[in-house]
Design a protein around this nucleic acid. Structure first.
Lengths: 223, 223
DNA sequence: CGTACAATCGGGGAATCCCTTATTATAATT
DNA sequence: AATTATAATAAGGGATTCCCCGATTGTACG
């Protein structure tokens, strides 16, 4: 069995060096190159023809998701694993959409990296276990169904109804349940009911989490 | 010459594993432990009595700068190196202010890490070369001159006490009052009291507002 | 016409929030 | 040394919210 050739793309030199050491310590892997930004990642993919690219999302020039998309189009034989700090649904969905083979959180055990690489080279798709299953299922259902315009990246707009978004925004803007009820001329109980539905949908069960979600998805700004 | 005992504190397991491999490959260093959040970093510092702590800034529970401040106060023999993605003026200044011995960008060569650790153990202060000299000189001038209250951190760091920032972070991360009380080993009533003081100081009287403030000022990220 | 789901509302108990007050310790000032 | 200020701790108590249950109505879709 030949070594698996790997290209590491991450903005941070120390992180790249660390990953390189980690992979070399595992055996069976050969780090054939490093890239310190997205554009370089594309160049080196062409030059070095690796089996696998490990792609950080937050890179200058061209972010990891962009790189993933182009690599998938231009180099069909290269497997792409996204390495991300975040389990944001938007990122994960976008990664799936552009055809990444793996999505691994930086908060993963080293062995998980090994497992992910091996799974991907067998043609499987690997996602970090902590990534919501329902999320992925939703996505898969959606794309397998009537396709049309891809509704994937409407982000929040597919997950919540209009009313729920309205209430989420009011919550994130600091209105209390009572205030929301008054503004919308509905009962406090109804607002509570909406809030709970929102929490279930998003799988976020605390108010600060809802606020952060609203900011991430652009429903409100932090200002 | 004995091995230098190192504690690594970073939210991300993969990054920690990478750094560990990197340091072990260098020789002369012994990674005696890892911490996956700020509070754990404090605990392990006490337990393991390392010579050096490598501290990421963006950590849950307690951010790296807070940890640095406390470690400097409580464990005078431990050297502190901040490992950061950013060369933000505010971060660097704050790091200097709380008495960190080093500030290293994650975008540094592996050898720089080695150099930094050795410099620091000799009692020197090490900063990544790309960090502006003028910045540091300005700071040093300011503190050596008429001291007064340090106006450096007009942002968050003058408005809140360390304890208050800690609690604000925990609130914004979605911990309930009870959870915070348990984590800090204090009464619920005390947490409530802190929260009210924070609200008065910031003139923000709702939790979503506090969360937005924490995001604006970089105490937490929206993710 | 049945199934699904959105939007509405209620009961009731647990938990939190909000306001006031208080004690102790430490830091700064005089 | 005495005073003042402020941080960190905590309790009491009433108002409010949260959370888990269920229920009704309307609408869209096959």
């Amino acid at each position: 069995m030949q070594n698996i050739k790997i290209l590491i793309a991450d903005d941070h030199t120390l992180i790249r060096a660390g990953l390189r050491q980690l992979l070399q310590g595992m055996g069976g892997f050969q780090v054939v190159g490093e890239a310190s930004n997205g554009r370089e990642a594309l160049q080196k993919t062409q030059e070095l023809q690796p089996d696998i690219i490990l792609l950080d999302i937050a890179m200058s020039e061209l972010n990891g998701l962009e790189v993933a998309e182009r690599v998938r189009k231009e180099f069909e034989t290269v497997y792409v694993i996204i390495l991300s700090m975040y389990s944001n649904e938007e990122y994960v969905l976008q990664a799936l959409k552009v055809g990444a083979h793996g999505y691994l959180l930086k908060d993963s055990a080293p062995t998980e990296l090994e497992i992910a690489i091996k799974a991907v080279t067998r043609g499987e798709t690997y996602l970090s276990p902590s990534i919501s299953k329902t999320l992925v299922n939703d996505y898969l259902n959606r794309i397998s169904g009537t396709n049309q315009e891809d509704k994937t990246m409407e982000g929040i707009f597919v997950k919540l109804t209009s009313r729920q978004r309205e209430i989420l925004q009011l919550i994130a803007e600091g209105n209390t349940t009572k205030e929301i009820a008054q503004k919308l001329f509905i009962s406090i109980k109804t607002v509570e009911s909406h809030r709970m539905k929102i929490m279930e949908r998003l799988e976020i069960y605390d108010i600060p989490g809802l606020v952060r979600y609203a900011i991430r998805t652009g429903i409100i700004s932090p200002n």
